[in-house]
Design a protein around this nucleic acid. Structure first.
Lengths: 128, 128
DNA sequence: AACGAATATGCCGTCAAGCGAATATTCTGA
DNA sequence: TCAGAATATTCGCTTGACGGCATATTCGTT
């Protein structure tokens, strides 16, 4: 059953943290990795699981991969993203991640430096 | 995270089938087992998983265990039970189970026989 | 007390999920 | 074409989920 695969997306803390972060807007893999503070291969594998479960869309821009929630989420996904919103009040990890996200994004916007190749600087507003 | 345990409930076909059946009303374990057509220990263990995940309440009546959905379900559970309702249109297993449920319940009500000990016959309307 | 029905649990084997470490791949810039 | 950054994948391992089978437990009946 395909539903089961969809629910699998919500059965892992890292994946929930990723979804929580993406509720605020798109992020590229390297920023996700930085915010979560976990090894990059781990993030990459969880992203694949989310994609397979229909909970994530990715778009390749040069050598960046922009991650966002599906433009037209399934009813199931939509309902559970709403639940995830409400969970922020209870789970400190989620709130902490949002803080880290803000710090990270602010730092990148202020000083793109080598963190943001020139060609995709215009993407910053989109993915940060 | 407790949420993860809650989502685990939805990550198994047997558990989804059980929830689908209970959406129609309470059932005791032996009838659940009969309707699902799977070994009784398997049902029992899945029921425990559902209980641990907050998706099931059980009540012991003599040597029967009546299973029902929580009287006051969590928002998460409520949202996903609604999703489950909608899934009936797509997944044949769910529809087939509901048919079997009707047949089974009708048979029991018509001829309780040894399937329904005298003392709990009055419970039949409740759990069937 | 003994038996049977309903239910739960223990044991064990199998298999998938998840992880870390290393490596492959893809793309960009020099 | 070469180097380096970003991302994906492979490998080997550990752990947990699930199932089947047998057995324990609980409760009612005789």
């Amino acid at each position: 059953m395909q539903v089961i695969q969809a629910y699998q997306c919500f059965c892992d803390e890292t994946r929930l943290r990723i979804l929580n972060l993406l509720l605020e807007g798109p992020l590229c893999v390297c920023h996700l990795t930085a915010i979560l503070g976990v090894p990059q291969p781990k993030v990459s594998r969880h992203l694949k699981a989310l994609r397979d479960g229909g909970a994530l869309e990715t778009e390749r821009c040069y050598n960046w991969t922009i991650c966002r929630l599906p433009a037209t989420p399934s009813p199931l996904l939509e309902a559970n993203l709403k639940c995830l919103q409400d969970l922020r009040a209870e789970e400190r990890v989620f709130k902490a991640d949002l803080k880290t996200r803000k710090r990270t994004v602010a730092r990148i916007l202020k000083d793109p430096g080598d963190a943001l190749p020139a060609q995709i600087r215009s993407l910053a507003k989109d993915c940060c």
